[in-house]
């Protein structure tokens, strides 16, 4: 306010790159009026993160949130405007940047794949051959925890030389007579 006649009448605008500001008459709030496109001054615009005014820390310019293509561009509030953590990961992805598959799913959350549903697939372990939970598998390979002599990604088959997959037990040895068998 240049009309009060004191030396501190005019203070520099607290805006990025010395851009212009105005003071709201009713509240005294200072609002930046010339923010760079895509960037808010008091707070990063939705979809961006940073700390443009250095509230409670150092000044950090607003940058676009990185969610590895696993958020919908039509959604609002996809990430935290201070930390940049992604809040609306799609296609069973999770993590601060939607960079990994959620528990119970496997695959590559960073795959170059337009449909996020195809990046992380459900573990869907075989009910008969799995020793642990049906929704618990290796996050990359999708391998489930198999019972003795059971194999396959989903623990759905017996190992070579074994047969009769029984729930909770596993597979039995074939016990073929070595003399009469061809394998």
């Amino acid at each position: 306010n240049a009309l009060t006649g004191s030396p501190g009448d005019c203070s520099p605008c607290p805006c990025p790159d010395h851009t212009t500001c105005v003071q709201v008459p009713e509240t005294g709030d200072v609002v930046c009026t010339n923010c760079p496109k895509g960037v808010r001054c008091e707070l990063c615009e939705d979809g961006f993160y940073g700390n443009p005014l250095g509230w409670g820390g150092t000044v950090q310019a607003c940058v676009r949130c990185e969610c590895n293509g696993n958020v919908d561009f039509n959604a609002v509030g996809v990430c935290d405007h201070m930390t940049g953590h992604c809040l609306k990961c799609l296609g069973h992805t999770t993590g601060d940047h939607c960079e990994k598959c959620r528990s119970g799913y496997y695959g590559n959350a960073l795959a170059n794949e337009l449909n996020p549903e195809r990046k992380c697939k459900p573990c869907a372990c075989n009910i008969a051959g799995t020793s642990g939970s049906l929704n618990d598998c290796h996050p990359d390979t999708g391998n489930c925890d198999c019972l003795n002599h059971v194999t396959g990604r989903d623990c759905g088959q017996c190992e070579a030389g074994y047969f009769n997959l029984q729930p909770g037990v596993g597979c039995e040895m074939c016990n073929c007579n070595p003399i009469g068998s061809v394998s």
Binding site: T27, D29, R40
Partner: peptide, 20 residues
């Protein structure tokens, strides 16, 4: 700071949201 509301022109107005 408490957000305040400015005086409104009489008649009909369009109001829209733009972040803060």
């Amino acid at each position: 700071p408490r957000p305040g509301i400015g005086p409104l022109t009489p008649g009909s107005n369009l109001i829209f949201a733009q972040s803060g």
